[in-house]
Each structure stands twice: as structure tokens, then as C-alpha cells.
Nucleic acid binder design. Structure first.
Lengths: 195, 195
DNA sequence: CCTATCAAGCTAATATGCATAGCCTAGCAG
DNA sequence: CTGCTAGGCTATGCATATTAGCTTGATAGG
């Protein structure tokens, strides 16, 4: 059936990943199936195995792509800022990313992965957070605890909002601003104590 | 093949749900399949449809069960407490539940559901949170914003910890205590401003 | 005690999706 | 021109959800 005159699709791991991201954007994480990716790429499902090992690996690739993108946004957001301004900027950027790409964010595993690329992307993200907190003046174990608090706050708020968990009419920007202020105040307090 | 002498299994929606919860506990949310539930219940998979409409409904039932249980824990935790003590107690109880039953917690959808039971359970949980904050002295929109902050903090920390996202050696109890303190301090500040 | 009904089980069959095996050829290196 | 290989393909097997339709245990009423 693969008669002459039929050109090849010319896929690669990158194009397959890209098609996968499009699917996730449009229909959500659950729609990321090999069948759907194959159809969108114009090949049969088994052909995908020439480019990715299996569905799990494809998910890892997609996640690594997304995490790198999020990373870039956060890095840009804190460029040239320090202290409370940097904290505020990175938290706002985090939420904004989730609002811009809710399905991409939902695709991210929160657990550390076996995939080295994905793990590396995760580590870079933590580094950015740590850098912000150091610019804040935090040191030692304080930095680690603060980073965890920051992450919990950012992920908690963004994932809940993105899932539609906050039903009431009160303004969500307002809620988030308050949360940022609370965190900033808390970190300031931590520094006072440590000095 | 259903010869004489073969007794009936005597299932019900409740027993099926119970078997499902056991599976989730033992092997995680991904292991909750109708096939597995059927095997554990000693019936064939299609038989389950006599008791639950489909897998989605079973998931909803499981989630409603879990949410009610979490609710009980939180309610007990705040009984007889008010203000910062109640805040601390409910946050500790939340995390403890997730540590006790990580798979159950992972099973909970964060979005509001179509299922009325599940939705009701979710609302009750929010009521408990609101009650804590009112006992704290917060009023009006402040209460809603504070409830969101509280939820983001609790869910963010617990889900990340439970997923294994916090790799570093620093003590997690410590991190959480700091987060609670930060939130308590923030709420105290909010009240000052409003007075 | 008989009997009709129905709930609760069953088998069979369909659909979707992942994955492997093995074939075929387009495109390129020499 | 020739042959190799990467990138396609079809065929197949397995897991799971779900529907259709049959069979029967248990029981309510006579």
C-alpha cells in the first residue's frame, strides 16, 4: 500500500512533540493519545514509535518543553529585579503562565521524573526560585524553606484557579495580590529574626 | 455457566465503592479500573454496571467518600478552637490526612464536579474553612480572600509533598510550620488594616 | 407450595488505545 | 547503478470500558 509517489511525512521527535503540545493545548492532557498525534501528523500510529519510545516518553518530552517555556517566562520576569519586587514578579508570571496555558500547566508532573531533560528543567526552575530568595537576603536553610513556601503558594493558587476551584465572585487578582503580600511579609519577618 | 448452587455476590453501590477505595489505597488512582474492582469484588466486570453507571461515576463516588472523610478530620481538628489555634490545627490536620492517605488525596478532583454529592462535600469543606476564618475575626470579602489563600497553601504544600516534589534534606515539618506562621501573620495583618 | 417477576449475575461482542513484529521502499551514500 | 537504512506501513495482540442480551436466584403473592 506504500506505493510509489507517496512522499514521506518527514517527522522527527521534535515535530511529534510539537503536535502533541498542540493537542494538549486544544483538548487537554487527556486528549494526548498516540492515535491522535499520529492522525494530526499524517501518519499511522505505529510509525510514531520510530521517533518516540512510547507514550510515557512523549509525555516526558512534552512536559520538558513546557517546563522550559515556563522557566523562560519566570527568568525574564525577574531579570533586573531583586527582593520583594522579584518575588512579586515571579509569582505574577507564574500565575499568568498558568492562565495563558492551563492545559500545558496541567500536563506538568509535580513529582521529579526519571527523564533527565525533565529533571534538569525542574532543577533550573528551583534555581531561579532560590536566586530570587537570595536576592531577597535569605540564606542557608531559610532559603530552602522559603522556596518551598513559595512553590506551594504558586502551585496551589494557580492549579486551583486553573481547575476552576474558586467559584465565588470575589476578584481573583485581589486574592492573589493578598497572597503575595502575605508571603512577602512573612519573608521579611524571617529575615528580621535571622539577623 | 451460572449454574445452580452459585451464590450471588450481593454487591451494592457502597460495597463497590469500598472495593474501589481499597484499590486506590493499595496501588494508586491509576489502578482504579472496573476490571480490578470486579476481580476484587468477585464478579465479572459488566456486572458492576448494575451498581454504578460507569467508571466516571465510580470515581465520583470514591471522591465523595474521601472528601467526606477529610471533612470529618478537619472538623474534628478545629472543634473547640478559634483564631490562630484553629488555623494551625486545620492546616496541620490537612497535611496529616494527605500523609496518611496520599493515594486517596491524589484521587480528589480539585475542580467542582457535576456530581451533587461530591459538590456538596466540597462546599462543606469550604464552610469549615470559612468558619475558622470568621472565628479569627475576619469578615466580608476578607474572609473569602483568606479562604483562598488558606486553600492554596494547604493544597499546594500537601500535594507537592505527597508527590515527592520536595527533594532536599531540610525538614518538611519545619517548612510547613513556617508556612503556617507566615499565613497566620498575614491574616493578623489583614485584620489590623481592616480595623 | 407454586409461580411470575425482577434484580443481579453472566457471556459475547464492539470500540478505543498502546504496543510489538515484520514487511516495503524512498532517499541517499558510495 | 546499487545497496543500506530510516521511516513508513499492515497485521496482530492485549487491556480496558461499555453495551446487548441471556439466565437464574430470590422473593412476593396467590
Amino acid at each position: 500500500m506504500n506505493g510509489p509517489g507517496v512522499p514521506r511525512a518527514g517527522l522527527s521527535a521534535a515535530t511529534v512533540t510539537s503536535a502533541a503540545v498542540e493537542l494538549v493545548d486544544e483538548y487537554g492532557p487527556a486528549a494526548l493519545t498516540l492515535t491522535a498525534v499520529a492522525e494530526r501528523s499524517g501518519v499511522s500510529a505505529p510509525s510514531l514509535y520510530k521517533h518516540v519510545r512510547n507514550l510515557a516518553e512523549l509525555r516526558d518530552r512534552v512536559a520538558a518543553y513546557i517546563l522550559a517555556e515556563l522557566n523562560n517566562r519566570l527568568t525574564n520576569a525577574v531579570l533586573g529585579r531583586a527582593g520583594p519586587e522579584a518575588l512579586r514578579a515571579i509569582l505574577l508570571a507564574y500565575r499568568q503562565y498558568v492562565l495563558d496555558y492551563p492545559h500545558r500547566y496541567a500536563m506538568l508532573p509535580q513529582a521529579p521524573s526519571d527523564d533527565p531533560d525533565l529533571e534538569a528543567a525542574g532543577n533550573r526552575l528551583i534555581e531561579v526560585a532560590i536566586a530570587v530568595l537570595r536576592s531577597y537576603g535569605l540564606t542557608g536553610a531559610d532559603t530552602i524553606h522559603a522556596a518551598r513556601c513559595m512553590r506551594a503558594v504558586a502551585h496551589g493558587f494557580a492549579s486551583l484557579e486553573s481547575a476552576g476551584a474558586f467559584g465565588l465572585p470575589e476578584d481573583l487578582n485581589d486574592s492573589y495580590e493578598r497572597l503575595i503580600d502575605i508571603l512577602a511579609l512573612g519573608f521579611a519577618e524571617t529575615m528580621e529574626k535571622s539577623s
